[in-house]
Design a protein around this nucleic acid. Structure first.
Length: 762
DNA sequence: AGCGCATCCATTTTT
DNA sequence: TGGATGCGCT
């Protein structure tokens, strides 16, 4: 192999050459992580003659899986496609689904189980709330579902939850019913895919478990810092026979704690596998020295990190712009101007990106870009498979495959409108539960449903006949034709055509696209010599919610920092770099852990840029209908002085009443530094690497000391304190957690637990 | 069934 | 500020 990869540096080669036993790779941003994974697989197959189907590589997104597969077949060259096809490369969820389709029977899972997405899950919770007669206001389905998932992510069911501390009985009840519903519907949620597979594979006595564990000789996990508890358990179990578990990740890029990622998985890997080989990839091939040093400036204050230092051999590059703007409009004008300029100088719009912390920031940016005629695309937003018409169509198809699925049946029972009103539906479901039937099955026993009015029965019978027809048709025809027939015979298409609006046309197009994607799937399967089934298509859809059209030509990309992870751009503008915005602070003050994650998020943002990076901050910003006055983010204060250059837009110091266009024109040339700005520049000569210390201009960079004058010692019971959001309140008691905090009574808000650093004495 | 008005609420996202 | 949602009316 050695001749094939002279392109690997020493640690990369080390990771590739390591064959047997656990391996932990810390892969810094831009350090060639994917390269290592792919070459490692190539090495196993080509050099060590490992059968491709005995190698499992797990990723988090379909996109990552797809890229890995592509790269593998490219490296393997002609003839390698067959090998790439045999490898198990997929997301956690897809891999589990595959195993459960094959072996799920032994743990009581029906062959044709459906996968409920978030909307479906929420519908189940809503229904459970109604059945149990709980108030949706008091128990918002969203929140309850969040709690349920948290339990499931830790491997707990309702029973285990009930046995735990601090339990809300109501949530346990809802949880239990939720599980029952899924079970009866022959459905699983995303957590189940992982959890059930863990159960399946961990079973010491089951033959299936043994088969699976022996099957995978080598297991690789990408983005290991994003794994949650159950995912870790899963890969451990899968690799338990051979211990050939290779995990790749970067603790500095762990930004998904809030959705269950457990950073301890990567931090404690060496404890769990005492003989693990550890490799650190620290050379960055992506960014200029200045950008790398900026990234280091931001991440270094982080408390618990694996010791490592990113470095690069690349050129110094140009300084990073730190731009002061007056408000978000001024900021947007700068962004627009700067993009137009770069474009005029020949940088493709595809190579530029604008990041923000939260989606709400995108609107103003969009407006400015639109006015200036700069093409842009926004990542995130309504996904194709989440659109109402697409979900309707899919529900019809899923009912054919699995009639037990109540969520799907209830979705389509009156779509398009066929005169089955809410009351009829309620009576029907009531009848179904009284007989212990799923709603669809209740259709067959309609005669016995005394509560359902005759008129409704007639219409329900009509639906039943339709479904039967589709079912018969499905046995003889391709899935794409089935959907076509459904849209035709139910009158779905006609209903949209009659609407004759632009919106309806868009929906029709989406449906046509859906049929097209089924055809694509069928063609693809045929090319692979397999038969594309309806259920096969549905599975693919459930596990792949986004149509990855990220590659759109000639557009600037606008996105949150979260969605930027894993990407890179020539030019990046990071907006909204103010305290409260980034690090973000929402309703609850947030603790040290949250702040650490924000820091890592900033690190991720900075390391996306190859050559040009600008950070913008405003002194004033309208967000959620109120005006906030902000100070530059502490993360700006963490940037090394010699890597940045400070600028201010003209209106940052003046207050012109101007239009967007005029402002955009004005900001073409940077105004001289406004006087207040210059006054606050540190006057001392800074040594290389020294940080800005101007506390008045920059936010304090030492975490936890914001607000300054509120040591916990001064806080005592009865003290009057001020909070930026809740106003004046009275301290009820002091609470020591990871840092000093107090429970304060705020008139009009009630008791709130607040960290001491967010309080000032009144 | 479908519309209009009021009200409430506010990260980050994948599968 | 705006979107999502819910309610009541027609």
């Amino acid at each position: 192999m050695s001749a094939a990869h002279p392109i690997l540096n020493t640690p990369q080669a080390e990771a590739v050459a390591h064959v047997n036993g656990p391996l932990l790779v810390f892969a810094g941003a831009g350090s060639g992580k994917t390269r290592v994974i792919t070459y490692r697989i190539v090495n196993l197959v080509a050099e060590h003659r490992v059968a491709p189907y005995r190698i499992l590589a797990v990723t988090f997104t379909n996109k990552a899986a797809g890229e890995m597969r592509d790269r593998l077949s490219r490296i393997l060259g002609p003839g390698g496609e067959a090998i790439a096809k045999d490898l198990w490369v997929g997301t956690f969820h897809a891999t589990c689904a595959k195993l459960l389709r094959r072996f799920g029977g032994s743990i009581g899972l029906p062959r044709d189980f459906v996968i409920y997405d978030t909307q479906d899950q929420r519908a189940v919770v809503s229904r459970v709330l109604k059945e149990l007669d709980f108030d949706e206001k008091r128990y918002p389905p969203r929140t309850v579902l969040g709690r349920i998932h948290k339990e499931k992510q830790e491997g707990r069911g309702p029973d285990e939850m009930e046995a735990g501390d601090y339990v809300d009985d109501v949530v346990v009840k809802i949880f239990r019913k939720y599980e029952e519903h899924l079970h009866r519907a022959g459905a699983v949620d995303f957590e189940d895919l992982i959890g059930r597979t863990v159960k399946l594979v961990e079973d010491p006595d089951s033959e299936d478990a043994k088969t699976i564990r022996r099957r995978f000789q080598y297991v690789l996990v990408d983005e290991f810092q994003d794994t949650n508890r159950m995912q870790y358990r899963l890969v451990k179990a899968l690799a338990s026979e051979t211990q050939n578990l290779c995990v790749v990740g970067d603790d500095d890029q762990s930004i998904y704690r809030w959705r269950g990622a457990d950073i301890r998985n990567i931090r404690n890997f060496r404890r769990d596998f005492a003989n693990a080989k550890v490799v650190k990839l620290e050379q960055n091939y992506r960014s200029t020295k200045r950008i790398v040093s900026a990234a280091l400036g931001v991440i270094s204050p982080s408390r618990e990190r694996e010791p490592k230092e990113l470095w690069t051999d690349n050129e110094d590059g140009i300084p990073i712009d730190v731009v002061a703007a007056r408000d978000e409009h001024d900021e947007a004008a700068f962004v627009t101007r700067s993009i137009s300029d770069a474009r005029a100088e020949g940088t493709s719009l595809r190579e530029m990106a604008v990041f923000y912390r939260i989606h709400a920031q995108s609107r103003v940016l969009e407006e400015a870009l639109r006015v200036a005629n700069v093409p842009y695309q926004i990542v995130g937003g309504m996904k194709f498979y989440e659109r109402a018409e697409v979900k309707d169509a899919l529900s019809y198809l899923r009912v054919l495959v699995n009639p037990q699925s109540d969520v799907d049946f209830l979705r389509i029972v009156n779509v398009p409108a066929r005169g089955i009103g809410q009351t009829s539906i309620e009576r029907l479901t009531a009848f179904a539960s009284s007989r212990g039937l799923q709603v669809h099955d209740a259709l067959a026993k309609l005669d016995e449903a005394t509560d359902v009015p005759t008129a409704a029965k007639k219409k329900l019978a009509g639906l039943r006949d339709l479904l039967e027809d589709f079912c018969a048709f499905e046995r003889q025809h391709a899935a794409s034709d089935v959907l076509d027939r459904i849209l035709e015979k139910t009158g779905y298409r006609d209903a949209l055509k009659n609407e004759d609006s632009a919106e309806a046309d868009a929906r029709l197009e989406n449906l046509a696209e859906l049929i097209g994607s089924i055809r694509d799937y069928e063609a693809e399967m045929q090319a692979a010599g397999e038969k594309g089934s309806l259920s096969g298509f549905l599975e693919r859809v459930s596990l792949q919610s986004d149509t990855d059209q990220m590659e759109e030509e000639g557009r600037v990309t606008l996105m949150t920092v979260h969605s930027a992870k894993g990407l890179e751009f020539e030019r990046v503008i990071l907006t909204g770099m103010e305290e409260e915005m980034f690090p973000y602070r929402g309703m609850d003050p947030g603790g040290e852990e949250e702040l650490e994650e924000e820091r890592r998020l900033a690190y991720v943002a900075i390391t996306r840029a190859r050559k040009h990076l600008a950070l913008t901050h405003t002194s004033m910003r309208q967000i959620f209908g109120t005006t906030r006055w902000g100070r530059p983010s502490r993360f700006i204060g963490d940037l090394p002085a010699e890597s940045i250059v400070q600028k201010a837009t003209r209106s940052a110091s003046q207050r012109p009443q101007q239009s967007y266009v005029e402002r955009a024109r004005e900001t073409r040339d940077y105004a001289p530094m406004p006087s207040w700005f210059q006054k606050k520049q540190p006057t001392v000569q800074r040594a290389a690497g020294e940080r800005y210390v101007d506390k008045e201009f920059f936010a304090d960079t030492s975490a936890g000391s914001e607000g300054g004058d509120s040591e916990s010692g001064e806080l005592r019971r009865g003290a009057r304190v001020l909070h930026s959001r809740f106003g004046e309140g009275e301290v009820r008691r002091i609470e020591a957690s990871s840092e000093p905090a107090a429970v304060v009574f705020f008139p009009g808000w009630g008791e709130k637990k607040v960290l001491a650093r967010f309080l000032r004495l009144a």
